[in-house]
Design a protein around this nucleic acid. Sequence first.
DNA 1: CTTGCCCTTCTAGTCACTGGAAGCTTATAT
DNA 2: ATATAAGCTTCCAGTGACTAGAAGGGCAAG
Lengths: 130, 130
Amino acid sequence: MNIGEASKQSGLPPKTIRYYEDRGLIAPPARAENGYRDYNDTDVHKLRFVRHSRGLGFSVDECSQLLSLYEDKGRQSADVKVIAQKHLTEIDEKIRELQELRSTLHHLVNTCQGDGRPDCPILEGLANPS
Amino acid sequence: MNIGEASKQSGLPPKTIRYYEDRGLIAPPARAENGYRDYNDTDVHKLRFVRHSRGLGFSVDECSQLLSLYEDKGRQSADVKVIAQKHLTEIDEKIRELQELRSTLHHLVNTCQGDGRPDCPILEGLANPS
DNA sequence: CTTGCCCTTCTAGTCACTGGAAGCTTATAT
DNA sequence: ATATAAGCTTCCAGTGACTAGAAGGGCAAG
């Protein structure tokens, strides 16, 4: 199947599929006689795996590791868990940062009248943060 | 004062200060006789303003707008509030996405034994998400 | 005088794509 | 049969917000 069909079935844009090939994430597929990439169901399956992994915020490198483990029938689930756990910790950290930031910003927005006058606690807060 | 001192007082790396100048965020400062950038307290004050704005996650373009409003004594606080409110909405959205993602990942991590066996619900979940 | 740090500019790399150009091949419509 | 459109190929460049590094000049202390 051509890259367009693989794109439809995997949910990844053709550009992204080629990019993943360049990055070494997905092995180069077979080529048809006309030079077009020729994907099979296994290729598509892996592309979907990568899409879901990326969707959960794993980096492309992490996806590469996960995909290797997925294909390694002798893997240890502990190796997978380490990667996932590390990522989970990073997400938790990111959420905490965003919530703190949100709290500060929310406070600033709430104290600003938002009218035609120039007095603005938001700008004051940015200039002289507490 | 040289860029190094402005860096210390503003909390921004010299490279970043030059980058902001390139981006048109901060007007080019005076130059000393030796060609070095020569910052004054007002410059540093603006740099600090930008640092705090960026710290709250405003984009460089948004920082540019906020800084213009900060310097415009005839501004309307409503203009500021619109920018901040929009950013707040984006942060809320980002937090929601991350929390959903976290929930899925947390579930996967929790159901994985993480031992020497190859069976791994994380990989299964990535291959066949529900 | 030389060592070492600070300053200058410019280029290029990061991450994960995405857009576009130029040139094939294939499918569809007339 | 032909015109056109869509799909494929490669390669180059741009995104955001820096950051690293190279090559060169300035300046104070030992």
